[in-house]
Amino acid sequence: MISTTESASNYDNLDQMPLGELLQNINREDAKVHEAVGKTIPQIEQLVSGIVERMKKGGRIFYIGAGTSGRLGILDASEIPPTYGADPGLVVGLIAGGDKAIRNAVEAAEDNETQAWKDLEAHNINELDTLVGIAASGRTPYVIGGLRTAREKGLLTAAVTCNAGSAISKEAEIAIEAVVGPEFVTGSTRMKSGTAQKLILNMISTSTMIQMGKVKGNKMVDMQLSNEKLVDRGTRMIMQEIGEGEISYEEANALLLKYGSVRKAVDNFKQ
């Protein structure tokens, strides 16, 4: 039986379709992603609850995947330190084939069922950690093997896939299945499937960081001040937190640069 992600596109003769119609139809297919992801919220909630419980005891999140799925995990993980001021090791993304595979395909890397656990062991992974396996197809051996071993060793495990009842779902404790339907270009899972996975990873990491106290109100009070735009944003956050008219832009900016974060600047001003 052909999986949903490998099923023929709902559209044919793409090479003969006018450009405007191409774009409209791609957008029409993309609109289906939101609904599919929405149906997975109960599973995402279960996962995040488990992550937060473990993270409060020192646990971490690990993403594993191959190709687009692996790259999306790395992308999500790499945004956590600058956005929330978290340690780079708190959320880690690993891709089959190693860092070289971020830009270039590494032949047969995803077919090695034992390599993921070896890659994870290099990070001293333990039972307080959570492993999230990402595979649009749901049948990537690299991900299957990693989830299987992790679950045997007592880690919390989850699968993010775009096929129902897939192999990785069976290996994970929590199965997150966003079935978005056939791709616009048959089998091109970097499209709707990739978008769904990106949304789900955003939900996992963002809600986790909020639950871990990394957001105050609706602001990234622990963000890294890595460029002028973020320093300006942080300065204005401080002014809003302290109250308009209570502190000047220059005073808020000086506080931010002195203490290195919005949270610390506001806390020290109030003392």
Rank of each mutant, 00 (worst) to 15 (best):
V33P: 03
L94Q: 01
A135S: 12
E183P: 07
E173S: 07
K57R: 13
I74Y: 03
R71T: 07
H34V: 14
F62Q: 03
T4H: 01
G165E: 05
V160Y: 00
K229A: 11
D222A: 09
Q115C: 03
K216T: 14
N218C: 10
A109M: 01
G138L: 01
E107P: 03
G260W: 10
Y259V: 01
I144A: 05
E173V: 08
E246P: 05
I51T: 00
W117D: 06
I64F: 02
L23H: 09
A108L: 07
V52R: 00
M191N: 11
E35C: 07
Q271V: 08
E45Q: 12
G245K: 10
E228F: 07
V143H: 02
A108I: 02
P42M: 14
A105H: 14
D15K: 11
I144S: 04
I61S: 00
Q271A: 13
Q240F: 07
L47H: 05
V48Y: 10
Q46V: 09
T208P: 10
Y142M: 03
G85T: 08
N218V: 14
Q240T: 13
L155E: 14
S248C: 08
T4I: 09
I125E: 02
P88S: 12
K264P: 04
I134M: 02
V48C: 13
E35D: 14
R190G: 02
G154L: 14
M220P: 09
S78A: 15
E244F: 13
A150R: 10
S193A: 15
E246Y: 12
K57W: 05
S78E: 03
P82G: 06
G89A: 11
L255A: 15
D222G: 08
S69N: 03
G217P: 11
K270Q: 14
A196D: 00
A105G: 04
A196M: 04
R60V: 06
A136I: 04
A105P: 11
S248Q: 06
N124I: 06
S49C: 06
N268M: 13
E183Q: 10
R236K: 14
E53L: 11
S226C: 05
L128C: 02
G234C: 02
G213K: 13
L23C: 08
L120Q: 02
G133K: 02
G73E: 00
G213M: 11
D129N: 06
R60C: 04
S9Y: 13
S137V: 06
E241T: 07
D87C: 12
